[in-house]
Every structure is written in C-alpha cells, then in structure tokens.
Design a protein around this nucleic acid. Structure first.
Lengths: 364, 364
DNA sequence: TTGAAAGCGGTACCAT
DNA sequence: ATGGTACCGCTTTCAA
C-alpha cells in the first residue's frame, strides 16, 4: 500500500456490503450493472458506495479480469517540429470515444523503436496493458515485430501495415485525397515545375504522401522532383541549390509545417517573393501555418478526429478478443452494452486550406 | 484475462516454483533479491524464471504492495507553441533517473485543470498510481487542491507551491539567474527601454519570470514594460502598437520561443530591422530559435535535466512514505538499496545563448 | 534455508 | 434475488 502519514484505509466492497447489509457478490453485481439485483437493493448498495466514496481497486479488478488499460507508446527522438504535440492531441481525441470507465489510455515515451518494442513486450508479459497504440511507424519498425510476436491487440495510426493480424486495427488519413487536391490545385494555378521536400525517410507515412502527390501530378502530366527533408539542416541544404537554380520549381510542397516555414525562410534569403515567385504548400496544417508571413496554404491535419477514430479502433481491437471485459464502472455507473464496432479505417482530411503562400507561377 | 485466439496462459510463480522444485515463497524471495536463499536454490529459481519467460503480473503485485507507477497529468488546452513537446522531453529525462524496474511513469492528458484534478482523485482512490507529477501550474490550479486533499505524494514541476505537504517535492528552473543574465546582458548592450511579452497569465511560472527580469533591470535603473502575450492573437495585437510607437522599446524579451518568432514577424512587417532597430530575446530556447532569421538569442531551457531532477524528486516523494516499496524486479534483477534522496530543488539553466537577434540599441 | 498458508480486493460460479 | 466462496498471482508472516 502507498499509505502515508495517516494510513487512510480506503473502503473495499466488504465495507460497502456491510453498510448496505448485503453480500459482496451483490455489491459486485450491482456496481457492474448486472441484472439480477432488485431495485431496492441496488439503490442501497449504490448509496452505500457513494457515501463511502468507494472506487474499485484497479489491481484487484485487473487480477481477475485483465487490465482495462491501453498504452500509446511514442518514439520520441526528434525534438524538432510542432508535430511534437501529436501524441497529446491524438489522446485528447481518443478519450472522446473511450469513456474513462471502460478503458484508460496512457502515453509512454521511448527513445527508439527498439526500446519501445522492449517496453511493450515487457508490459504485455506483466499484463499491464491489454492493447497498444503505435504511431509514426518507421521502415522496419521493431514495434510492429514485437506486437506481432506477443501477440497483442494493437492500433496502428498513420499507416496500414500489411499482413496485420486479426487483432490489429489501423487508422490512417486519406492522404490520397489530400495530395490529389494539392496536385489539382497547383496544376490549375498553372504550375508545371513542382518539388516536394519529403519528410523523414525513416518514417513510412511521408513516403506514401509523396507518392500520392506524384501520382496526382502525373495524371496532369506534371513531374515531381523530390528532395530530402529529414531534419531542418538537411532540408535547408537541399533547398538552397534547388531554389537558386535556373529551372527552379515554381511550387514547393512539404510534408510538415516546420519544413514549410523553413522553405519560406530560404526563399526570403534568396530574394524570392512568396507567393509571386514561389508557391508553398504545407503538407500538415497547424497553428504555426497562419502565423507565418505569408500564411501557409496547407493540407488539413485533423489529429483529434484521428484520435477519435483511434479510440473506436481500440475498442474494436479489444472487442475482437473473446475474453476482454471492459465492463464495470463506478457507483452509479450504467452498463453500456458495447455495440459491435466497425473496422478501423480512413479519416477524411477535408478541403485544402488556401492561404497566402500560393499563387499562379511567375509569368504564368 | 486478455487472451486471444490461442489463450496463452502466461507463467506464474507457481510454474517457476514447480520447475525449480521449490515453494512459491522461495521464488518470491529470490526474485525480489531478499537474503535467506541459498546460492544453489537462487540459481535454480533464476534459471527457471528465465527459461519460462516469467514476469511478475502487475496487478497481483500491486494488490499487495501498492502501485509501482506514477502519472504525469498534463493539461493540454493550448495547441500553440513548440513547448508542446515539453511533457515528452520531461518524461524522457525522468526515465533516466528512475529505472523501469522500480517505477513506471505514464503520461495522461486532461483538457482542463478541473478534469485533471478529477482524474487524479479517481486514480488515487482506485490505487492506480502511487504518486503524481504536475507541470504548468496555473493560478488557482485545481490539481494542487486535489493533490492536497487526497493526500498523494506529488512532484510539482516549474513552480514551488507554498504550504506544500511533506510528501510533495518540487523542481524548478533557476529563473532568477536566467533573467538576471538577460537583464545584465541587455543593460550592458546599452538598452534602456525594455519590454517583456509575458506568457499566459493563467500560468504561474511566466509571472515569476517576468518579475525576475523586472528586478534584474531595476537593479540597473531600467524599467520594464510588460504586455499581454497569452496566445498568438493577443500577443500580436499588443505588439503592433508597442513597436509602432515613438518611444518603442529597443529590446523585447518573451516568455517562450513561439512568441519570440511572432515578435520577429511583427517587426518585419513594421519595417524594423532585427537586431539593428530592435533586439529580441526568447525566454525559452528551442530548435526553432536557430532556424529563424535572424536566429534568436535565448535563455536555455534544459527540459531533460529538469526531467532527471523530476525523476529524483519522484523517488524522494515516494521514499518519504513509510510503506511504499519499489523493490522487486525481473529475473536476475538485483536489489538496489534505495539511497536517501536529497530534497528536490532548483535546476541551473546555464549561460544565455547569444545569437543574432540582439545588438546595441539604435544610436546606442 | 525452506514450506504452508493467510491475505490483498474484486469477480463469478454455484447454491439456495 | 441473494449469499457463500473459490479463485486471480504475488507477498509475507509464521513454523519447521
């Protein structure tokens, strides 16, 4: 016990049962909203529990019923970029679709995919979490291998892993639609020379996005030049020669908002006016995008919506197992019959947000 | 249980005991590194546990010994700013001083201090966590009140709460030193008119920092104008008239990096050259500070170091209680005698990082 | 040094 | 509809 100074012994169902004048079984039934308890008894138990300030001990419940918690394991190794808030926003959204009575979602931080994999393996073996959520999947991500071998229910956010076990769900943004929109938009403005500053090469998702843009532009007969954008240093180094060249692109698309800001900066230093000499599109919208000069045309990035979908996927992933019970809630908690969840899927991104950084090409 | 498809029954100490040919008590003793087990037996048990891939079930252990986990409860309601990564960096640092065998640190997200308070109350009552870590304390923060009434061991990061219970620890940055440095630096450059764009008024810490700067400047006979900086919109609105006025400040200090970027932007729009017409100092250094044009002179922000101190404080907070045991580890885990922890304290910020955004005042 | 057994706080089966 | 009670897996007396 973690009792201090005054060892406040917190009430147990035995106390509740005594106060209500019933057995512990009835208390358990009542508090878990199962039928077979008379209204009068139910009332007394609920009142007793409420009066005593009773809450179920997590450990005791987990011991029999398994953990009612899932973990989002974040690989935190790139301090740069405003996307750092991503996990927090994602969880905010997820909490909107999973009631705290059903499941709690904790965030854990690892310094590498290997460390993350090891942690998940450990926590799964310790029966600490019933499922895991992973994002920002890299090429050869050790987390996926670990999850596969456990095997634990999982939600993969941002990528659709191939050959996923039945207990996995995935939630992705509709990048195809998003970059189709970007391609169409730039083509219609008259741009013929377009470049993309790709995001981190280690990440899987940016590659998909770049491919989507390439396809969309190809349909219009426009080619796409891609330059490395992994980290601000490399991006800047690649950007300078690109924009200084005579056949420089008239439009640059980035994978994320931070890199788009960098493009603005490099353009300014080279004396290129945005949007007159160069159009810039950020592949990821964020508050930073409307604070720049000029403000950035950007692909919406509905992280909270992604989070809500993640919450649903999590329930589905757990619901897929025959044994998991997320029932049971506090005093007065109702029993919500868990509906059959639709499989996880694709989250729409909405319409491209056109701001001040895009215009027809010079002389266009 | 959260078993799926193949209900893999994970091994328990009973299995380990059987394989090793001893009782469960001996297994428990061995795995917790207690003395009184013969070397030979110990060896057999360890081998058996290792061979079976045994790990202690969190729930079972917690049921008797109390939770071996703490939670950082983040209030996530301001999407703006690169400080969003703060909790993640903090945890990264904290994990360096708390071994995963001793304690795990989970991050949880709440939309408001009230919600955070409610969650902590709930989790404390459910015996889910043994301690809580809170940051970004606001005026009249409900989390503090909740923690006080529980009463739970806590680590307060960023502020030293007054009248804190004995089971609380706090970790703060040495803001006095930091802004003393800023004040001296600006004074020596020759600045006489200095303004500070304060951070969110709801937060406690920015107010302290502004006060520290004011004191440092006052010592040099220089006054400080403070303008509201809560959110980019307000900051921009306050900044424009300030910088357009005839008696405009020759140096502006901000609380955070994002606002400093905003100052750069407003100055550019007003045709003020930085640093020739205006010096800018960011109160919080970040990678974004050396990507701007010009790069920003900034106060170091050693978040990971803050995290390490937080980890130590957490151990101290838990060690203060007579009953908490963080012992017990995996197979082969050694028993580390827990040293008496020093009380929590102040983390040094280091030397002001001088970059391109500061210079003597015009005509100075 | 080792073993038997009583909890920890719920859940759920089996009687009544 | 309700009560008695055997678990869940581990820790920790208490004896031997």
């Amino acid at each position: 016990m973690s009792d201090y100074s005054t060892p406040v012994r917190r009430p147990t169902i035995v106390d509740v049962a005594r106060v209500a004048g019933v057995s512990t079984a009835v208390v358990s039934y009542t508090l878990n909203g199962r039928r077979g308890v008379s209204a009068a008894t139910r009332e007394r138990v609920l009142r007793a529990a409420d009066q005593l300030g009773w809450r179920p001990a997590t450990a005791a419940r987990s011991l029999r019923s398994g953990p009612a918690a899932a973990a989002l394991v974040v690989v935190h190794d790139q301090p740069f970029g405003t996307r750092a808030a991503f996990p927090l926003d994602l969880v905010t959204g997820a909490l909107q679709t999973i009631g705290p009575d059903t499941l709690t979602l904790a965030v854990h931080v690892a310094g590498s995919t290997a460390e993350a994999a090891q942690l998940m393996d450990r926590w799964w073996t310790e029966r600490r979490y019933a499922a895991f959520v992973v994002t920002g999947i890299r090429a050869d991500d050790e987390r996926l291998a670990a999850l596969r071998s456990l095997p634990a229910p999982a939600v993969v956010v941002g990528t659709a892993p191939d050959g996923a076990p039945a207990t996995w769900q995935h939630v992705v943004l509709d990048d195809d639609d998003a970059f189709e929109q970007v391609g169409d938009f730039l083509a219609e403005l008259g741009h013929r020379r377009v470049a993309m500053v790709a995001g981190s090469e280690r990440l899987v998702s940016p590659a998909r996005r770049a491919a989507a843009l390439e396809v969309a532009l190809a349909r219009r007969g426009i080619g796409l030049r891609t330059v490395a954008g992994d980290g601000p240093g490399r991006a800047a180094a690649a950007l300078r020669p690109l924009l200084a060249a005579g056949d420089r692109p008239t439009a640059v698309v980035t994978d994320d908002d931070a890199t788009a800001g960098l493009v603005l900066d490099v353009a300014r230093r080279l004396g290129l006016g945005v949007p007159w000499d160069l159009s810039v599109v950020a592949g990821t919208d964020s508050p930073a995008c409307y604070l720049t000069t000029p403000s950035l045309t950007a692909v919406p990035y509905p992280v909270e919506e992604l989070g809500r979908a993640t919450g649903r996927a999590l329930r589905a992933a757990l619901g897929a197992g025959p044994d998991w019970r997320g029932t049971g809630s506090g005093p007065g908690g109702e029993q919500h019959p868990r509906a059959v969840e639709p499989p996880s899927g694709t989250v729409a991104v909405g319409r491209l947000v056109v701001r001040g950084s895009t215009a027809p090409p010079p002389g266009g």
